[in-house]
């Protein structure tokens, strides 16, 4: 598993933070890079395990997902849906302007 491994620098941390939509102040980036590198270095040990021909395990539930008739079984309570919104107008969630 040597392919595609990179050592994270502050710039990559900034990129991951952006992908995760988490603000990380610039002064914390180097420290965080160090921490993440230690963790990623530690998980490198998985490379020792022979996994040729092994199917990746996504779930322990040995079942195919259940199906049900395509019918509406829930809903019809907009008040409850917006109950916890910081900023709800009528039955809408309000957000800052997205399109100029």
């Amino acid at each position: 598993m040597s392919q595609d491994k990179a050592t994270l620098d502050a710039k990559t941390v900034a990129k991951i933070a952006h992908l995760a939509r988490i603000k990380v102040p610039e002064e914390e980036q180097a420290h965080l890079a160090d921490e993440l590198n230690k963790l990623l270095g530690w998980v490198e040990q998985l490379g020792e395990v022979d996994t040729d021909g092994v199917e990746p395990m996504t779930s322990v539930a040995a079942q195919t997902l259940r199906r049900r008739p395509d019918q509406v079984t829930d809903g019809g309570y907009p008040d409850a849906v917006v109950l916890n919104a910081t900023d709800a107008a009528e039955h809408f969630f309000s957000v800052p302007k997205v399109v100029e």
Binding site: D4, V43, T51, P56, M57, V60
Partner: peptide, 20 residues
């Protein structure tokens, strides 16, 4: 993320299968 998915996530899922 793109480029690291196979090396980390898929690999871990395979090792998980070994553990099970």
């Amino acid at each position: 993320s793109a480029g690291y998915y196979d090396a980390y996530y898929l690999k871990a899922q395979k090792v998980r299968a070994r553990i099970a």
